[in-house]
Design a protein around this nucleic acid. Structure first.
Lengths: 132, 132
DNA sequence: AACTGGTATGTTATCTTATTACATAAGTTG
DNA sequence: CAACTTATGTAATAAGATAACATACCAGTT
């Protein structure tokens, strides 16, 4: 756990649940996994997620309504991130692409659009599952 | 209405509702707008949307859980599409970007990933709302 | 016309995801 | 301590999506 952000108990529990998971988790799945730690209501999860998203320690996968811990060692220090999501096994690969970032920035510049967050998600089948 | 796909009554109603709208509509908003046309249940909307998405006549905005009619005159004939979504006024600009498409294709090629659908959504504030 | 297979529909119930509202507690700063 | 902000707990409800089942409609064939 980096010391970049002091996490509260709930935030730490949610982050750990995501960090341990092999694939993205929905808020309700997180809730189920934290029952033993005293979690009873969705809001406890959503509130923690909100902060973690703020800190850049967790990403939201819009096309799945699910969440993943950031793959980067020092979170929050990256530009545009893209996700490749395998629909077979659920695994997610995270990568940053400066060229895409530049294209987005070009378009928004040309059109006077002020971007706040950009989502890039590639759904498909990963190499592993293709060979299986 | 193009003759590229014979739409059923329900599909035509849903498509028209989206085409008339100034901004993306949720499935339940579509349902409400079609009450007078006999729609009573969400499934009627979702089933129509499924087909329209198939035909490429409608796009789903993952970060909004909402739908828009395709902006292109002849739908379904385009590659990767990106959306710029204004969080103030709700307006959506649709554009295709071959460079981003190429970057995605490069990554998937390098990683043996077989893509089925790619989502690119830029959230932010449009020029109009910035000047307002 | 009757038979058959495929597609579209209608309806109810249910499941999943997310937020509102309100009360309480805990930490921080003046 | 008082005032303030931030975190928590809990219940209720809103919003988005699907499952299950029954019925109808529309070819093409016999």
């Amino acid at each position: 756990m980096t010391a970049r952000h002091e996490l509260t108990r709930n935030q730490a529990l949610v982050f750990d649940a995501l960090a341990k998971a092999e694939s993205p988790l929905s808020a309700y799945t997180i809730l189920d996994r934290l029952r033993d730690d005293g979690f009873r209501a969705p809001l406890q999860v959503y509130r923690a997620l909100e902060k973690l998203l703020d800190y850049g320690m967790v990403h939201r996968l819009e096309s799945l309504n699910a969440f993943v811990a950031c793959a980067h060692p020092h979170c929050g220090e990256h530009g545009l991130i893209a996700f490749a999501i395998c629909e077979k096994c659920g695994q997610v690969s995270e990568f940053s692409d400066t060229v895409i970032e530049q294209q987005v920035s070009d378009w928004t510049g040309r059109n006077g659009f002020k971007p706040s967050k950009t989502t890039v998600e590639i759904r498909g089948t990963c190499a592993n599952c293709l060979n299986g």
